[in-house]
């Protein structure tokens, strides 16, 4: 256990790297997810089909395979060479984006057509209705789901070590290779748990906050 002490700082930095890449991917995927989620409810059929294709593809392929593809195959296919950091962020974003779009779509569709009818009868156009009537109600479904996606991202970030990205898990493995002790791996596990569990609690708090107001 004492052999771990000099490495604690490094481990914590690794945790921060995991957090950073997850948060960044979450942010981007939220933007993409919102746009795609809205597109998924579009009246234009080709748009809806396009979104569905993207979502089903990403959801049906393991994250590990997506990571490999982004890092090893993209240079061959598109001539684009990505650093492990960029490949990792891109892949995590694309991955979470698919789930996020489903969360947004579910949120929008959870708001019944009666709300649209009422807004329309008050002469509120699409933009106004989305902004003031639908989005606030959709968030009640979308935000809790988004918290879950964030937790998945944090765990998924550990896979990025496979393409050479050094985050928490890889850091722990590196320390283990030096100290020949499994303690760093256990410490990494604890750090993962702390991050994910805290997020889960935040998610619950958000869910409860959205219930208030006699909805």
């Amino acid at each position: 256990m004492s052999s771990l002490v000099p490495y604690i700082g490094v481990l914590i930095r690794g945790a921060f790297v995991t957090l950073e890449i997850s948060a960044l991917s979450l942010l981007f995927s939220f933007v993409i997810g919102t746009l795609l989620g809205m597109a998924a409810t579009s009246r234009i059929t080709p748009v809806r089909i396009g979104v569905k294709l993207y979502v089903e593809t990403v959801r049906s392929v393991p994250l590990l395979v997506l990571l490999f593809f982004a890092y090893y195959a993209l240079p061959l296919v598109l001539g684009v060479n990505l650093s492990p950091y960029r490949a990792a962020t891109l892949t995590l974003t694309a991955y979470a984006g698919a789930f996020m779009s489903e969360a947004v779509r579910a949120g929008i569709q959870a708001v019944g057509s009666d709300q649209w009818a009422a807004a329309r009868s008050l002469a509120m156009n699409y933009r106004l209705t989305m902004l003031y009537v639908v989005a606030p109600q959709a968030l009640r479904v979308t935000l809790p789901a988004a918290a879950g996606i964030f937790i998945d991202l944090l765990k998924g970030a550990s896979l990025t070590s496979i393409i050479g990205f050094v985050e928490l898990l890889q850091t722990a493995v590196n320390i283990r290779n030096v100290t020949f002790s499994i303690t760093p791996l256990m410490a990494a596990g604890v750090l993962y748990f702390i991050m994910c569990f805290s997020l889960s609690r935040v998610g619950h708090r958000i869910e409860r906050a959205l219930q208030y107001g006699g909805h």
Binding site: D114, Q115, A118, S121, A123, Y132, Q137, G214, H215
Partner: peptide, 15 residues
């Protein structure tokens, strides 16, 4: 729509 007001059977208030 600006000139016509509508009242629905299930009220349709914004919750």
């Amino acid at each position: 729509r600006r000139k016509v007001g509508m009242i629905f059977q299930h009220f349709n208030l914004f919750p």
